[in-house]
Amino acid sequence: MALDFVSILYIGALGLLLLGTFGLVTTTHLFRLILALALAEAGVNLLLILSGYRGGAQPPILGFGPQDMPMVDPIPQALVLTAIVIGVGVQALAVAAAVRIYRRYGTLDLVALKAHLEGDLARKQGIAPPKSAEKPAGERPLSPVPPRPQEP
């Protein structure tokens, strides 16, 4: 089967989406998760644009090409513009939170962070910290870093 233009792009979009999903599910490093999310988003954006494309058409701008040529659907393009902006907003927020978290806990590994989170919550609420099943007691989740004294 000879690959035509649209199928190549479809495979590309799908590949990006699946790559991103794979990264999201298998990685535990916060920063790489943010990157994987960007990959998945790029894939979906490509898929959306593809859903408005028709062969042999021109961009949806009047007076850009010959008068009677068909044009591609402008709606998905507007949607993708919106989606890109949303994506970058969320990404910036995630990066900012990652910076703060790293300063607080000294790690960006989500598994370790989850342990810290549960330990902290348990301490705040005065209950026994959750025991992790796979580790012996000595290697329980590290206690979180005590807050550094505020410099005057």
Binding site: L17, G20, T21, L24, L30, L33, I34, L37, A40, E41, V44, I86, V90, L93, A94, A97, A98, R100, I101, R104, Y105, L110, L113, K114, H116, L117, D120, L121, K124, P144
Partner: peptide
């Protein structure tokens, strides 16, 4: 702005962003 709140937020953010995708 405490540590647990931030970690919980980030976990929520990642799940939610994945769901949105």
């Amino acid at each position: 702005g405490t540590g647990p709140a931030l970690v919980a937020t980030v976990r929520y953010l990642l799940v939610s962003a994945f769901g949105s995708v």
